[in-house]
Design a protein around this nucleic acid. Structure first.
Length: 113
DNA sequence: ACCATGACGGTGT
DNA sequence: GACACCGCCATGG
């Protein structure tokens, strides 16, 4: 495991986010683990703050399916709105049927590259 | 160098 | 389920 390279790390995060299908969502921890940096969930969150506009940032929530980053959207209700427009059911700032909606990058992109 | 602050996560109560 | 802790690690003051 090499030392953290901000540039490469952010890019790796965005690569995963870009692959999350509509109607599904992943978590910070799952993404960190998928790119080879288990335990760097906070860094993934940090990367999302400067997430490119063309990526589905609203499809990244915490390990419990809670929209922990909604306040970083403009307006804050935008995140929830985007998810619902894709058919994701929400219950009090949290994704319903989380176990079913959760998209695990480890199982979906294990073959690429 | 010390300390506070997070789009976090796991455990225990 | 809600809450409190604690471990985690880069950033900024």
């Amino acid at each position: 495991m090499e030392s953290l390279n901000k540039e490469a790390f952010y890019k790796a995060v965005y690569d995963i986010v870009a692959q999350i299908p509509a109607g599904r969502a992943s978590s910070y921890g799952a993404i960190a683990k998928a790119i080879g940096y288990p335990g760097y969930s906070r860094m993934v969150g940090q990367a999302m703050k400067s997430c490119p506009k063309h990526l589905p940032a609203h499809r990244v929530v915490n390990s419990q399916g809670i929209l922990s980053g909604k306040d970083c959207f403009d307006p804050p209700e935008k995140m929830q709105q985007l998810l619902e427009s894709e058919g994701v059911q929400l219950f009090k700032n949290r994704i319903a049927n989380w176990k079913f909606v959760f998209w695990n990058p480890m199982e979906e992109i294990a073959f690429e590259k």
